[in-house]
Design a protein around this nucleic acid. Structure first.
Lengths: 350, 350
DNA sequence: CTGTTAGCGCCTTCAC
DNA sequence: GTGAAGGCGCTAACAG
């Protein structure tokens, strides 16, 4: 058996190649290419030109190893093809690209241990910071988050945060958004408002539930968690199933406030199929303002999360953290407003 | 003025730290950590354990510099928060993550020169391959694509490809999809079928146009490009404007086949607002099968592009290219089927 | 203004 | 089975 021999044809040009060609030391080449003032204008010009001509490209990897800055950040989300998450990422990318950063994306599939692995892999890859929309609930282990901090890298929690002192956070005002949505339904005359709560081990969903509860209380409606608060997931089929269940149990209700647009659209589909009129018999409000939510008929009311802005702000938090490197890290918390978009699914009165 | 002094507190552990602590040479530590057989089982165990205890993490950057493999790929798309693109990326990520690759995402904003810059930046970052859904039309310069090939990195064109010999490609059968969509409309009795063509400098749109034309011809309908083929962009407002224009010009039509779901939904909104019945007065078929397209009422027919599968296949093409490194690169071309999903917007007959 | 040297963290010959 | 040395490509002292 013969070993395969791979000719490692060097496909890229280094400053040494330029150095040799021009008989100028590598450091001068480096200086010239970095526009260092302490180099003769003519030689600089010469170097820059031959570099271009030789099609030289700076190896960022070497630079990263040398400088300790990779100029890469990692973003960890449940699924990248959810409009909310991809739009957050868009915001991050657009804010960071002008500064020369690259964005690595990771998906957890909503699995906490996959989240851990992703974060470790990102640290291995020497990212300069981590953005996370977590799938780790309030009670679960957060050592992977500690690791990020220990490695002295900024950690920015986006939307799905957890209480974690050393991380910056950007969220929307979930409580207020939910409160407004519920209040709106009450003002439309709804008395028995079902809440699709999603998983309350996440703060965002807990806060939406609390907003719902507070609105009921403030308007003299007794909260009946057993009957009207349903744990769903943020999945279309779950919303459908929840409606099926309510009907099967003969629970009467005149509105649904869903903490997720996906569950909301599931409810919409099922109600429609069952011939239950929206909003006349059941009014409907979702949460997230996903792009598809306004094309149903009736169009569905929803609370906007301004994902693009969340991404941008998250990126800005990262940048301020980077700048104050070395000092004691200050973790900032941004709360964006949650704006209710009222559409036809919840207009009982004109 | 005093210069600020930054104590570069080394936040990470290297094999040298382990080496010193254990008084074992770095090379042995390296070998142990890489599970090299030529190291004593006991020392190996010792090393692995202290590594874990010291919270050692391998610096992939150093490895990348050494090995010439960064284990990072770059994906360049117009916008990451379009469902189609983010789902393609999801497919790529899911296929490549098990092999240890990271995915960097870049957005061009549909701008050809931004695309060039992105690609150069990715090459600087020493990515192992580039996935591209191009914004560069048939007639524009493709030097940036040549650069990728010259650097000996696999280039995979996804969906929006251009003729480029040295790149692998995965597309769907746009011609057939468009043909089927148009044929379906004809079979529903439509005679005057408008085509929203998008930008035909991209092959995908050109092929959709050709499919539309061929279907008309095969069914004895004369193609009237001037009257019925409208250049729109893949944007909701463009679809709206196109309908407004048609009405203003008093052009009669009984169907729209849009090469883009976004333009299609624009048409839907405008037709609805004008009180024009879908499908009775105007039947409607889109292209892309975006998630939102089926929630309108009537639901809109559309040609599916199977973006997840496209992403997966693209990743596989990359992997085969990587394996045959050194040999003459073979560029493969995959054509996935385009499946028409018939919904209520195009059912004139029962 | 320019060249020499060293080192970022790792792996991998080459010796022993 | 283990250690020493060199180099991936780059920059930043340190000399001159």
């Amino acid at each position: 058996m013969y070993e395969m021999v791979f000719m490692k044809t060097k496909s890229h040009i280094t400053i040494y190649d330029i150095s040799k060609r021009l008989k100028i030391s590598p450091s001068t080449v480096s200086r010239a290419l970095n526009d260092n003032p302490r180099v003769n204008a003519d030689t600089k010009k010469l170097i820059v030109e031959t570099a271009k001509q030789m099609n030289y490209k700076q190896n960022k990897l070497a630079l990263a190893l040398k400088s300790g800055q990779s100029m890469v950040v990692g973003v960890v989300v449940p699924f990248i093809n959810r409009s909310f998450f991809s739009t957050v990422i868009r915001g991050i990318e657009e804010e960071l690209k002008p500064l020369g950063y690259h964005v690595i994306i990771c998906q957890t599939g909503e699995d906490s241990s996959a989240e851990q692995e992703n974060i470790y892999a990102l640290l291995d890859a020497q990212v300069d910071g981590v953005f996370l929309s977590t799938s780790t609930g309030r009670t679960e282990s957060k050592i992977h988050l500690n690791h990020v901090i220990e490695h002295d890298k900024p950690l920015v929690l986006v939307d799905r945060g957890v209480d974690f002192a050393d991380a910056s956070t950007v969220v929307i005002d979930d409580f207020k958004g939910a409160y407004e949505a519920t209040k709106h339904l009450i003002e439309q005359g709804c008395k028995t408002i079902v809440h699709f709560a999603c998983d309350r081990k996440f703060d965002i969903y807990e806060n939406r539930f609390l907003g719902y509860s507070a609105a009921l209380e403030d308007h003299g409606i007794r909260l009946d968690s057993k009957k009207y608060v349903i744990q769903t997931n943020s999945v279309i089929e779950n919303g459908r199933a929840a409606v099926v269940d309510l009907l099967k149990q003969n629970i009467e209700f005149d509105a649904v406030f869903s903490a997720s647009d996906f569950a909301a659209i599931g409810a919409y589909l099922e109600l429609e199929e069952q011939g239950i009129g929206i909003p006349d018999q059941v009014a409907l409000v979702g949460f997230g303002n996903e792009p598809f939510i306004k094309y149903t008929r009736p169009s569905i009311s929803s609370v906007d999360q301004s994902p693009l802005e969340m991404g941008r702000r998250a990126a800005q938090l990262f940048l301020t953290s980077i700048k104050q490197k070395g000092e004691d890290p200050i973790s900032e918390k941004i709360v964006l407003p949650a704006v209710l978009h009222i559409r036809n699914s919840s207009k009982k009165l004109e």
